[in-house]
Amino acid sequence: MAFILETKDLTKQFGGLTAVDKTSLKLKEGGLRCILGPNGCGKTTLFNLISGCYKPTSGKIIFAGQDISGQPVHLINRAGIGRKFQIPSVFNSMTVEENLRVPSSSNWKPSLLRSKNSVPGNRQEILTLLNLLKLTEKTNELAGNLSHGEKQWLEIGMVMASKPRLMLLDEPTAGMTAAETNKTAQLIHQISIETGISVVVIEHDLNFVKKLASRVTVMYKGSIFREGNYEEIQEDKDVQSIYLGRKR
């Protein structure tokens, strides 16, 4: 079975602090994976390494058979890794539709003079996306005027519009109400099943993890602590003591 993503002894140190410590993660093509772990255990740093934001101190990142460790951010994205930030990052002064156009006009050398209405093909894709995100009514609304939850969905849509092979979602439900969290779980589940895009989700909320019914990787102090399905993780005494016990 081919792995879409493989990290080998991936390590990142900030001065004396080892934020990610010899992490070896394997993800199957088309798979859905949750990464769980207490605050500050290195989840976001792991994403920052994979997406090229930081260069690893040591270790390797293999994506679709290619070593991408230490490559610049934009080239890693072009290779097929899309990322959603922990803090919703949309283009506030642009409309929802324009937000979706930014990644989907991705030949990365945007035309200087052509009118933007002459971009073909995209229109239909954008409509489909808007429908999937349930943002059709907000097409011409400024992204800055959306609610927090809607911004999170928009950003997920933007990452989809960039047609990645692997999506990294950093706490997509942070700050959401229970209803919004449910909707987000459904959306991610649907994306994973219908598009074949491989997805890695960092998550705090155990209910959310349960809904996704995915394999779970628990991180602790920069390393992988456990891996298993939701029930196994939930019943694991050690996981309970480091994570669940502390949480509630």
């Binding site: 930030f85 949309v90 283009f91 930014v102 990644p103 035309s111 009118s115 933007k116 933007m158 960039s162």
Partner: peptide, 29 residues
Amino acid sequence: DRIVNAPFGTILSAVRDNEDRVEFFGYNI
């Protein structure tokens, strides 16, 4: 006016709003 209304102009506004987000969509800022 053509330039700011072309796809390049859209990307430019996006860079103004959130440079990192644009870079993570594969553009060379």
